[in-house]
Design a protein around this nucleic acid. Structure first.
Lengths: 210, 210, 210, 210
DNA sequence: TATGAATGAGCATTCATTCAT
DNA sequence: GATGAATGAATGCTCATTCAT
């Protein structure tokens, strides 16, 4: 077994008690799945990239699909946890929304593979496991928006619709940024999206200063 | 060969001069690709669904990939054309934006498979052909937004960023709607998104009445 | 595809309407299954021996197991049919028993692979399909023995037990013969087993002359 | 390591000096081999059933095949020994035959796994080791029959043929009995087979009373 | 002696593609 | 153009075996 090149990279994916090998498999899979899709990635490739034997994958995961699913749950959990963490000490829903957006962008920047994998799975038949996950990032946004509406900070509207609007803006902006369609700096981008979010949510435009 | 069940359904996909068989293949492929992904669909399934022999596919397309690509180009073309058509007789950029959004939603509703296929391909390695397409839906939005900024109707901002915001809102709302996460009526949804778009684009909130 | 070396050998296994290829697969499988067992035979070996590509097997059989099962049903059918044929024009149960024994031995000699495959499957988990087959060789013997008892030619005893005794003698003698443990001529062997069978079945020893 | 569930069951398989672990492996293997065949049983299953680690098997046996072979030799030895023991104090070949048949049936009843494993191996490529074993059950029968012929108790015939006839009857009757095709009591069955054997062997029918 | 993670050759099966008819 | 049997490389997965602890 070659030295693990991921050893210091992605501790997020390494559960306590799980072996080094399992983390290597996860990371290799994550890299390949985001690059070539789940169906487009072979177990052989995963093993090679992880520096292990093909059979070893099956000592840790029942099947390629289980690997993909567990990886997805892991990624979702990491993402959701980070979002929740970002608003833990905040009370004002407006502060929370701003924090969530920043956190969302930061996560996409810091863990591009994880973020990317989550986006990819959404458009896959694996997407069905989504329904079993609770809470998901979407729920965090929905909850905060509902709270903001109740407290009178945001205008009255369907909170799921509102969440869709905000999440849509973020994901699309990040996608455009990644594809080089937007040259604005990442920091500036975040400000713009926060501004846009408040324009969409507030009773009147931008009454809340970021 | 069984009677073509798509004969009267999807003329959008039937080019002049192309045979009935080719249209059957396209439609079968479209249905399966959106349901199971491109990699997840076998040529055998396509042939069965199209009511033809497996080998016949290769009389019309060089490979499964070519089929997927041509189908994608077709879908993109149909989408872009419809968007362009919706603003052909309009002059005010604000009218155009409103029309584009409506058109976007209507297309997604009327041609869910085509719309869905376009969304799916984005998150696929096939997504690379995107760059060769000109113009794409995104370009239509960008162009109109640029025009609106130049004419002073929209606030100054990067037009690609603005397009990302608007497109993101639309696609995410449609996704939520399709997954049953939003129960608002489709018509109401369109109004909401138009309203949100103007909130994001206008100098001040909703000064433009839909 | 190489010329089929079995073309003129085993028409028993070639069903009308089934392709030459299918017969080649059947024959290759039969040879290998009897030699190395079902589990011990790989699809690659079957394909090689049949002079076809590995994938071709799956155009004719859903799986290796289906191949093994269908082959077994075929073999059983051929065997049973031949036994039934041998007594078609006979009426005296004693003649029938003698004819069945001869036919049993002749079949084992003329179609050693088929005979062998049937014997092998009996001691396999595939043996469960045995119960679904009707009638099997055993049933032919049981039926004739029952008839002989009813008509007073054979002594009163459980007909299944009697069939077990007769069949056991035949199969074991053939096994010993094949392994070179018995040097007696095949013809002589048949006489001996017929004699033995009547000793077992008759009221008194050998009252019936063969 | 879990408590050995076989500890008090099958001392036959536990050689002096061999560890408890080895006995556990033997017994687990015996159970699985008879149920699923040798090829059909994995070392992992054996280890699990034996309550040990997979690697431990290789501390006691060089390979799965060696395990199967040694197990077979063991089983054959146990069987042959028991047969020989049953005739140790007898002198009349007719008594010996009767005793052997009873012993054969009793063994099959008392040690069904061992008996079954011996039968299974016969139809396996492992069957080649049979030739190296001396003496085997068959030899015991052959020897006694030869003796009986020489002493004038049995009619003149090839002693191997005669052994095949007797052994065939026994094995087939046991097989039918195990599969529920014969409902006669086991004791009655033995009597019947002894009777049949003497009919086959004696100069004239049943002159020897059991 | 016992462990169990790791191995990697080998397996049954799939599937995009070809081609003689 | 259309067929569909045949192809064979590639895939996900298995499993007997090894070895550091």
């Amino acid at each position: 077994m070659k030295p693990n090149p991921y050893k210091n990279q992605l501790t997020t994916l390494k559960r306590k008690g799980s072996s080094d090998t399992e983390a290597r498999i996860r990371n290799a899979a994550l890299n390949l799945f985001t690059k070539k899709g789940i169906k487009g990635t072979t177990t052989r490739e995963i093993a090679t990239k992880a520096g292990i034997a093909e059979g070893t994958i099956y000592k840790h995961f029942k099947s390629k699909e289980e690997l993909a699913v567990k990886l997805f749950l892991h990624c979702m959990d990491a993402f959701t946890t980070e979002l929740l963490e970002s608003i833990r000490e905040l009370t004002d829903p407006r502060d929370k929304i701003a924090a969530l957006i920043k956190s969302f962008f930061y996560f996409a920047k810091r863990e591009p593979k994880i973020y990317s994998y989550i986006m990819v799975v959404h458009h896959t038949e694996l997407g069905k496991v989504l329904k079993q996950i609770e809470p998901k990032p979407k729920d965090v946004f929905t909850q905060v928006i509902r709270e903001g509406i109740q407290k009178g900070y945001f205008r009255k509207m369907d909170e799921n619709l509102a969440a869709a609007l905000v999440i849509g803006m973020m994901t699309r902006v990040i996608l455009f940024y990644e594809r080089g369609l937007i040259t604005t700096s990442y920091t500036e981008l975040i400000s713009e999206v926060v501004e846009a979010a408040f324009r969409v949510l507030n009773e009147t435009k931008s009454e809340y200063n970021i």
